[in-house]
Design a protein around this nucleic acid. Structure first.
Length: 633
DNA sequence: TTGCGACCGCTTTTT
DNA sequence: GCGGTCGCAA
């Protein structure tokens, strides 16, 4: 039995041991939100709830895995039967299980962002839209608009009118584009990320017996980061929870920072209206930061109107060291200030890994990166290409996709374009021929690639066999040995490196029972969380730093127009979200917090002379100390 | 189809 | 200032 009295504070204990009914837990930064959730799951299991009756929905794979691991450490039960995972994973599970009823082939493909863009390109072509058409969004922009419409459950034309008035004249063509895109996905037996959710929701809404089955089955639904759910995600959760109404939503409205991709803070604010019998519990004790840092953070968020007002109380003792606001003449001085402070801290015993530099946008880190390199300070940046999104990994995956889903036109096109002399046009012709005849060997390839073409066909046939579809690692080896090694060696100077990545893929694939589940993971597990594994000072956008903490935090580029970004401050809601972002940044710090800004920055567009961020001006003067770096860079 | 010069645009990003 | 994309020519 877990010692709830000694391991949890009173507020946490109240949440963990709450009696039946919907519960909203408003959990401040550093208040042990994850702890409360994991103990809640353990508590339920401890009290005889069957694991399979519990849903634990999170935003990231990392959060799901961490929580389930910790639950497993708390109690002897196995946690495998818990329905734990990201919203997309849960939705995918339903959709795959009831694919036929939802109108899909059970081997449907999941398109990642790049695949979606690829398919959308074909729609632009079909509509004879030049991709650089004036006053018309390009692929990424269109996908963003479509995604928002889905996540907000708003008709496209209404969304455009309200939020993209500059595209109002294009409404008809955008609606047509969305229709073609939908049609192509259907034809390819493919879904994109948003479809996973919206189709699962549609399934639950339309199929009464299935909905009732799940509503009856799931006794407890727990949701993490509820403040960042979209309307669609909240709907999905609601459909699962509506039976027993045992939903525990945990979140911090003050940390809602993803509205631009559909997160709707109103889900949280209106939770008590949706579940009138609900209880609202607060976790207000902050274990992370010094009282000085916390006072500043509390003051920073106070200006927001749309929130559950709450004041975080420090558990830690005073450090007698106030956060520093650092005014620098230029971005270069800012960079050298940060570098020299880091070296000072290092001498005082703070290790590189305990330090983070946070910023609003990646390009804000430019000068700092140069300076850290120059100063010989090791650092690590969270950004860049994700492992599974690299071209060679997607290439190999395309062979496997085609083996399980022969209707996957995106995969087909990716494979055939590897042949010499095959580009977009020929790929389309080959696809047309293949889908008409239904047999690869009946397709006539261009002369330029007859040599390897037959080799590919037999390879493709081999890996599509039922036996090999249970052995994804062997499939990949066959693809490499029978085709791709030659391809990569003739095309790329860094072939050795790529082949090494591919052998990693082989060992990764060995863990999976079949091709479908491997491919699903490849697309739904795109973010590899290497964040804590490497060495050095951590450089990160504030968005990516959510949920993390460091002993020392520098927030840089705190100048109006950069942070808050000028594009966000046109609306009140936009400005409030920027302020929440600032709040997230300050609450990452445990011991030291530096708020730094340059008064001038050389750039090739926009203003060069900068004013300190309005968020700094909102903080009472006595809560921080002013610092002017002496060294001129 | 491919390669090259011109041209645009430039916040945040998980799944 | 730079990287990605487009259009055009070979």
């Amino acid at each position: 039995m877990i010692d709830y009295v000694n391991l949890l504070n009173e507020e946490q204990r109240e949440a963990v041991t709450a009696t039946p009914g919907p519960i909203l837990v408003v959990a401040g930064a550093g208040s042990g939100k994850t702890r409360a959730l994991t103990y809640r799951v353990a508590y339920l299991l401890d009290n005889g709830v069957e694991p399979s009756r519990i849903v634990l929905a999170t935003f990231t794979n990392k959060a799901a895995r961490q929580m389930l691991e910790r639950v497993g450490q708390l109690i002897p039960h196995g946690t495998e039967a818990i329905w734990g995972g990201t919203f997309h994973h849960l939705a995918h599970r339903l959709l795959r299980r009831h694919a036929a009823l939802a109108g899909y082939d059970p081997s449907f493909t999941i398109l990642d962002r790049a695949d979606s863009a690829e398919l959308l390109s074909e729609c632009y072509e079909e509509m004879k839209l030049s991709r650089s058409e004036v006053h018309f969004p390009r692929r990424e922009g269109a996908l963003e608009i479509f995604g928002l419409a889905t996540n907000r459950e708003t008709p496209l034309d209404k969304l455009i009118a309200e939020d993209f008035p500059h595209f109002a004249e294009q409404t008809e063509r955008l609606v047509e584009l969305a229709r073609l895109y939908r049609k192509r996905k259907q034809k390819a037996s493919a879904v994109d990320y948003d479809d996973l959710l919206s189709e699962a929701v549609r399934l639950l809404r339309d199929q009464n017996s299935i909905r009732e089955e799940y509503q009856d089955h799931f006794h407890h639904i727990l949701v993490d980061e509820y403040q960042d759910t979209s309307r669609l995600q909240a709907e999905f959760i609601h459909l699962l929870a509506a039976g027993h109404r045992q939903i525990m939503a945990v979140g911090d409205d003050a940390q809602s920072i993803y509205s631009w991709r559909g997160a709707d803070i109103r889900n949280m604010l209106a939770f008590p209206e949706r579940y009138p019998e609900c209880r609202v519990l607060y976790l207000r004790a902050n274990y992370r930061s010094t009282p000085e840092i916390l006072s500043l953070a509390n003051a920073a968020i106070a200006a927001n109107r749309f929130q559950f007002p709450k004041e975080l109380a420090p558990v830690r003792n005073s450090h007698r060291l106030k956060p520093a606001v650092v005014s620098c003449p230029t971005a270069n001085v800012q960079a050298s200030f940060v570098a020299s402070q880091i070296q000072t801290l290092r001498r005082e015993g703070v290790s590189w890994e305990e330090i983070a530099i946070l910023y609003r946008a990646h390009f804000h880190a430019l000068e700092v990166q140069l300076e850290l390199t120059r100063a010989g300070i090791p650092f690590e940046i969270t950004s860049g290409l994700r492992f599974f999104e690299q071209a060679h990994l997607k290439d190999v995956a395309a062979f496997l996709r085609l083996a399980t889903n022969p209707r996957d036109s995106v995969a087909f096109s990716r494979v055939v374009r590897m042949f010499p002399g095959v580009g977009e046009k020929t790929a389309n012709r080959l696809w047309e021929e293949f889908s008409r005849k239904g047999d690869l060997s009946a397709v006539s390839p261009p002369k330029s690639c007859t040599a390897s073409w037959n080799q590919w066909i037999s390879l493709q046939r081999e890996i599509a066999s039922p036996e090999l579809r249970q052995l994804p690692a062997a499939q990949i080896e066959k693809v490499i040995d029978g085709f791709y090694r030659e391809q990569v060696e003739s095309q790329h100077a860094d072939a050795a490196h790529r082949l090494e990545d591919l052998s990693q893929l082989v060992s990764f694939a060995a863990e999976f029972p079949d091709t479908d589940s491997l491919l699903t993971q490849l697309t739904l597990l795109t973010n590899t969380d290497r964040s804590n594994s490497r060495e050095g000072v951590h450089l990160s956008t504030i968005h990516q730093a959510k949920g993390l903490e460091w002993r020392t935090v520098f927030v840089i580029m705190l100048a109006d127009g950069l942070f808050p970004s000028s594009r966000s401050t046109e609306s009140l809601m936009g400005e409030e979200e920027e302020r929440r972002l600032f709040y997230v940044a300050t609450t990452r710090a445990q011991d030291h917090l530096f708020l730094v800004y340059p008064r001038y920055r050389a750039s090739h567009y926009g203003e060069n002379s900068l004013r300190p961020s309005r968020f700094l001006a909102e903080i009472p003067r006595e809560l921080y100390s002013d610092v002017r770096p002496s060294r001129i860079g």
